[in-house]
Each structure stands twice: as C-alpha cells, then as structure tokens.
C-alpha cells in the first residue's frame, strides 16, 4: 500500500503507529498523538534498550521509510529521569515527520545512532557537550562546541547562566584527530 494514498497525515500516522506497536509494544512507554497545531507530530517514548532497534526499524521499513535524521538533541526536564534524548525523523517519500524520545537519568548511557545515520556523530557530540549524556559505541565522543578543558555542561538547567570559564591558551590540537 502506498502511504501517500491516505487522505490526511493523521490517518497515515495512525496506521504507522499501529505497525510500530505490533513490533515494539513492550518497549514503548507512551505515545502522544499530534494535537491541533499543524506542526505537531506524533511522539513515541521508547525504553533505552529498544531505542536503536526502533530507529533502525523506522529507517529500513518499506512503508515507514524515515530515512532522514532531521535532528538529534536532548532536553533537561528536571524530573526523574532527568533527560530526554530527542530524535526528529523525516521521510522523503511520504513527507511525514515523527519524533522518538528516550528518557535517561543522569549518568545513564544511550546507545549511539551513528551506525544508523553517520550524521548523528556531531549531533551526539553536541548532546554530550551540552547535557553530559554519553553515547555508548560512539566513535569519538569529544566536546563539539565548548573548549575541551571546560568543566560542566552548559545547557543543563542547573548550570549558572554566567558560569564563565576563560583560558589563557587555545586548546591543544590532538594530531590523531586530524585527517
């Protein structure tokens, strides 16, 4: 069945979510269907142990076909578990978007998505830099934006807004990281 034949995206999403539920029912914590706003998309909260399997399924399944990782980021919710890692996906063939979230507590690792989308590499480095969430299996999990000597993770809610850290010298270049 061509998913584009469906009249509205809401119907298309419903069919897709049924398909996902059959395969991942035990691993899905919660599904939020889009509200009234035109920019809303369905949000799937998934357990950490099934995250990469779900992402791989969303990418490789013929009908779902979410080949494109539009964005990978995180949020600090200040509840337990503390963080949500967010994957925004887009399908070029169906023109639909979907959002996958994974709740992680402080110090807990998430499995890397670089094997599925190589472009997740820098996005995961940014999440590590800004939130301090480690990605297991990442090829080179270094800070992306801040200085390597920086202490703390600035986008955490408990990081002080004016927590300046200045260095007298530029950070040293590790030649093994150069291509």
């Amino acid at each position: 069945m061509d998913i584009r034949a469906l009249v509205t995206s809401a119907d298309a999403w419903k069919a897709q979510i049924e398909k996902i539920k059959i395969k991942f029912d035990s691993s899905i914590e919660e599904i939020r269907l889009p509200g009234i706003y035109p920019t809303d998309v369905p949000i799937i909260y998934v357990k950490g142990n099934a995250l990469t399997e779900l992402l791989m399924f969303l990418k490789t399944d013929q009908i779902l076909d979410y080949q494109f990782l539009s964005d990978l980021t995180a949020t600090d919710e200040e509840v337990q578990p503390r963080f949500e890692v967010v994957y925004n996906l887009f399908s070029h063939s169906t023109k639909l978007r979907i959002r996958v979230k994974c709740r992680v507590s402080e110090g807990q690792e998430v499995r890397t998505a670089t094997a599925i989308w190589p472009g997740a590499n820098w996005a995961e480095r940014e999440v590590w830099d800004m939130f301090g969430i480690r990605f297991a299996g990442h090829p080179s999990l270094r800070r992306l934006l801040m200085d390597e000597r920086w202490e703390g993770h600035p986008l955490r809610k408990d990081y002080p807004l004016r927590g300046y850290q200045f260095f007298q010298t530029s950070q040293e270049v590790d030649t093994k990281n150069l291509e």
Partner: peptide, 10 residues
C-alpha cells in the same frame, strides 16, 4: 566568545 579569546590574545 570564550573559545576565541586565546586566539585574539595570540
């Protein structure tokens, strides 16, 4: 920005 500061100093 903070990362640029040592460069300007140099």
């Amino acid at each position: 920005n903070a990362k640029m500061a040592p460069v300007l100093k140099t």
